[in-house]
Design a protein around this nucleic acid. Structure first.
Lengths: 116, 116
DNA sequence: CACGAACATCGACGTCTGTCAATATTGATG
DNA sequence: CATCAATATTGACAGACGTCGATGTTCGTG
């Protein structure tokens, strides 16, 4: 039985280098869903829309208008990004605001940047 | 008609920041397949195995043994990574060696790291 | 040239994913 | 409390994806 990390443990607690030694099965199983979440054009654009929005956060209502997709579809993509640990979610009245988790992106950047 | 970039143009020629301004449709369409390629545990482990292998490259024969998967399956994953621009491929006799394209990983890292 | 080894391609199969319309939930407001 | 607006959930469906066994291709070697 392995000491399991919390579901959304920072990437840095999981693995910090691609080159020092190969990822274990566990590490790649934990890491892959995060990249998979980024591996969709709509979700990538959502992340960039939120990141570039003033205050670093955006309301779902703003995001819906940026796509030619149904509201449930956008909601679905936001859920995927949130569950991957890439977006924080905060409810303010009827509105829901999403914010990019810079720590997570930073960890991913450090991981990818570790290759010579 | 847009000035189309070559299929495997460096990420840096496509977009260098997630926060300066949102990605366009074209940019996210171009970028998403790269992250999608990394969004599979087997492929992530392949990248890390190759990156951490001596000389920064590995022969397919070494990689096959590291997984409990069929040889065609590994070959398929290597193809996906290669076509995403993440791996370079070189044939030496009967052997094929793959090498991580550090430039591509570096570009991705810079992109992800651009979030505050 | 025949054979075997390393790797790729093909075709098939079950599962996962992105999308939608319909519906549910939550909260503000009259 | 009734209603409306914002968002989430559900169920369905087509297409994409990961995997395999079988087969093809390329190259070194006897």
């Amino acid at each position: 039985m392995s000491k399991s990390l919390p579901l959304l443990a920072p990437v840095s607690e999981c693995c910090s280098s691609l080159t020092a030694e190969p990822l274990t099965d566990d590490q790649s199983d934990r890491l892959a869903p995060v990249f998979k979440a980024l591996g969709d054009p709509v979700r990538l654009r959502l992340v960039s829309l939120i990141a570039s929005h003033e205050g670093g956060e955006a309301c779902v209502c703003d995001l819906n208008d940026a796509f030619d997709l149904s509201q449930p579809t956008i909601s679905h993509h936001l859920k995927v990004l949130h569950e991957a640990g890439l977006l924080d979610r905060s409810k303010r009245g009827v509105w829901v605001h999403y914010r990019v988790r810079a720590e997570m992106l930073g960890d991913l950047a450090a991981l990818l940047g570790s290759a010579r």
